[in-house]
Computed example of a mutant assay.
Amino acid sequence: MLSKEKLARINELAKKSKSSGLSIEEAKEQSALRKEYLETFRATMRDTIESVKVIDPSGNDVTPEKVQQAKKGKFLN
């Protein structure tokens, strides 16, 4: 998870971009922060999906095969 300071900086740069524009250094910083944010988001989402177990009303495990394989691969690494 990104720190509150980094999230605040992302928002600050976005507001400045809309109002007065960014310098080259600020644009590079914004790009790097966005990339870090997306990597963190994707990793968190992947972990969440891989930890899901789907059970039907009859009590049977109907977790998609792709999720089961991803879960097995994660534990083998």
Score class of each variant (00 low, 15 high):
residue 63 T to C: 07
residue 3 S to C: 07
residue 41 F to I: 03
residue 18 K to D: 13
residue 3 S to A: 11
residue 41 F to N: 07
residue 69 Q to K: 15
residue 65 E to C: 08
residue 47 D to F: 05
residue 8 A to H: 12
residue 26 E to I: 00
residue 13 L to W: 03
residue 11 N to Y: 10
residue 53 K to V: 10
residue 3 S to K: 14
residue 27 A to S: 06
residue 71 K to H: 14
residue 71 K to M: 13
residue 13 L to R: 02
residue 42 R to T: 03
residue 8 A to D: 12
residue 52 V to A: 12
residue 13 L to I: 00
residue 56 D to G: 05
residue 38 L to M: 06
residue 50 E to S: 08
residue 75 F to T: 15
residue 38 L to V: 05
residue 37 Y to I: 03
residue 70 A to E: 13
residue 36 E to S: 06
residue 69 Q to M: 15
residue 58 S to K: 14
residue 14 A to R: 12
residue 27 A to V: 01
residue 30 Q to I: 01
residue 70 A to W: 08
residue 61 D to I: 02
residue 63 T to R: 06
residue 28 K to D: 05
residue 1 M to A: 14
residue 58 S to E: 13
residue 58 S to R: 15
residue 22 L to N: 00
residue 31 S to Y: 01
residue 30 Q to K: 08
residue 13 L to C: 00
residue 53 K to C: 09
residue 46 R to M: 08
residue 32 A to C: 03
residue 38 L to R: 11
residue 46 R to E: 12
residue 44 T to M: 10
residue 59 G to W: 09
residue 46 R to S: 12
residue 33 L to C: 01
residue 12 E to R: 06
residue 6 K to D: 07
residue 10 I to Y: 02
residue 45 M to N: 10
residue 58 S to N: 13
residue 20 S to Q: 13
residue 20 S to L: 04
residue 26 E to K: 01
residue 25 E to H: 03
residue 23 S to L: 00
residue 60 N to S: 14
residue 12 E to W: 03
residue 16 K to C: 03
residue 18 K to R: 12
residue 47 D to N: 12
residue 31 S to A: 05
residue 53 K to M: 08
residue 25 E to S: 04
residue 45 M to H: 11
residue 1 M to G: 15
residue 49 I to N: 10
residue 13 L to N: 03
residue 29 E to A: 00
residue 31 S to V: 02
residue 10 I to D: 00
residue 27 A to C: 02
residue 63 T to S: 08
residue 44 T to S: 12
residue 26 E to R: 00
residue 8 A to E: 14
residue 6 K to Q: 13
residue 34 R to Y: 02
residue 28 K to E: 04
residue 34 R to A: 04
residue 61 D to R: 08
residue 18 K to L: 05
residue 46 R to C: 09
residue 26 E to T: 01
residue 66 K to Y: 11
residue 48 T to Y: 11
residue 48 T to M: 12
residue 67 V to S: 01
residue 20 S to H: 09
residue 70 A to P: 02
residue 4 K to Q: 15
residue 7 L to I: 07
residue 41 F to T: 07
residue 69 Q to E: 13
residue 24 I to M: 04
residue 61 D to T: 07
residue 9 R to M: 06
residue 75 F to H: 15
residue 13 L to A: 02
residue 35 K to Q: 11
residue 7 L to P: 03
residue 5 E to P: 02
residue 43 A to L: 09
residue 67 V to N: 05
residue 7 L to Q: 10
residue 37 Y to H: 09
residue 70 A to F: 09
residue 75 F to W: 15
residue 9 R to V: 04
residue 31 S to K: 07
residue 20 S to V: 10
residue 77 N to T: 13
residue 19 S to V: 08
residue 12 E to S: 10
residue 52 V to Q: 11
residue 59 G to E: 08
residue 4 K to M: 13
residue 34 R to M: 02
